[in-house]
Amino acid sequence: MSSKYISSSVHISGLMLTPRITQENASTVAELVLLGFSSHPQAEIPLFFLFCLVYLVNLSGNTAVIILVIIDSCLQTPMYFFLCHLAFVNIFYTTVVVPKMLFNLLTSRKVISYKFCLVQTYISLFMGAAECMILAVMALDRYVAICYPLRYLLIMNQSACVQLAVGAWIISFLASVVPLYMTIAPFCGPYVIDHIFCEVPVLLHMVCGDTSLQETMMVTGASGTLLLPFLLIILSYLNILVAVMKMNSAEDRKKASSTCTSHLTVVVIYYGTGMFMYMRPKSLYSAEGDKLISLFYAIINPALNPLIYSLRNKEVKRAMRRVRKRWVVSQSQKTPS
């Protein structure tokens, strides 16, 4: 290694993992060791193919949702407008995380540049906050649709939907990226991240000195981006439950419940794992356990979302049949007789 760098090596399972630190400024880390699944080397190749498959399902499923909403006029409603935002978050979030993780599964030198580690941290926090806000807005949409059905399209008009979406993105940015930027602190060695990607709870263990300020900011930010939207979702569904119970027709109750089941499934999976990861003290950190939790909300859940919304949603199934029928008709017209 060039004299320009001061090396600090870490040996794990026979591998030498060497982060780089610039000599001009010892506090500036050029590379960090990203362990991932190094403690289970025999599982890395199977995990590579598994996560490749999950990532492809995520990309194809969420892209299909966006395209389907765009080309089918029957799906151009407030609910599916917000679903497109959720699909975009799922694609962007995993694209920042998964490719680097897949690359490290295949290489013996499992490192990540300091700058890209910060990019992962900022974007994962931003996208996570945005997903919380969008899920809350979707719950609000379901509340208006079920509790005020005759005024639904008047209340949730195009302007209101755009304002809610823009507001969700702006609040997510202000409640996640800005506090993180203001409290980011230098790292201390060893520069080793025992995780699958860079995110705030894990990086707290590398911050020099007292991290009480960073922990307080993380819990405060999590309260704004996790707890408050979750409370809004709970209140929305309590009102929905009361409205459903007042319905005279069993068919109406079944229809109202079916429109909420998919959203509730996503909320329970995402908020359950997210709250455990971000709303707990640093002392409860567990490397192996946190890797599994992060896999759920950063990789597996985004791939499940389009499946949950499409397999349990009759409108999406009908839209898929309409699009497929139009495609078959267009292909038959192109075929020469």
Rank of each mutant, 00 (worst) to 15 (best):
E24W: 01
L135P: 02
M245K: 14
N58A: 08
A298E: 11
I234H: 08
M277W: 11
S294I: 13
T183P: 00
G209N: 05
T28E: 12
L135F: 07
Y181S: 09
V192I: 13
M16W: 14
I45H: 15
M206G: 00
K246M: 11
F296Y: 14
A250E: 13
I21N: 04
C147W: 15
T261G: 07
C260R: 07
T18Q: 15
S310Q: 03
C52W: 06
C52K: 05
M279L: 12
E215T: 07
Y181H: 01
S38Y: 15
A250Q: 09
K317S: 05
E315Y: 04
F173H: 05
L153W: 04
V177Q: 07
F48E: 04
T18I: 12
G189F: 06
D141A: 01
K291I: 04
P78Q: 08
T335H: 14
V54R: 05
E44W: 12
V268C: 14
A165F: 10
C198K: 00
L75S: 06
I233M: 09
L238W: 03
P149T: 08
L227C: 04
D72Y: 03
S13T: 15
L231V: 11
I134D: 01
E31I: 02
Q163Y: 02
G128I: 06
D194A: 10
A250D: 13
Y122A: 01
A139C: 06
Q42F: 13
L304M: 14
P201G: 06
F126A: 05
K317Q: 09
N239W: 07
A26N: 01
P281E: 03
F92I: 15
R280T: 04
K325S: 09
H40M: 13
G289S: 09
F187T: 01
L105I: 01
A165Q: 07
V207R: 12
P99T: 08
N248R: 15
I134V: 12
L203T: 08
I240T: 03
A136T: 03
L284H: 10
H40I: 09
C198T: 03
W169P: 00
Q163K: 05
S236W: 14
K110P: 05
L105E: 00
L135S: 02
Y309P: 00
A139Y: 02
N25Y: 13
T220C: 12
S108Q: 15
H195Y: 07
A175H: 10
M245L: 08
R324L: 01
P229G: 02
T107D: 14
Q120Y: 12
C84Q: 12
C260A: 01
P302G: 04
F116K: 03
W327V: 09
M217Y: 10
F230V: 02
K325Q: 14
R280Q: 07
K334F: 04
I234F: 11
M275P: 02
M16C: 10
K325A: 11
I134W: 02
M247T: 08
F276Q: 03
N301A: 15
L307R: 05
L307I: 04
L238H: 08
V33E: 11
K282F: 06
I134L: 11
N90E: 10
T261A: 14
K282H: 08
K110D: 06
L174T: 06
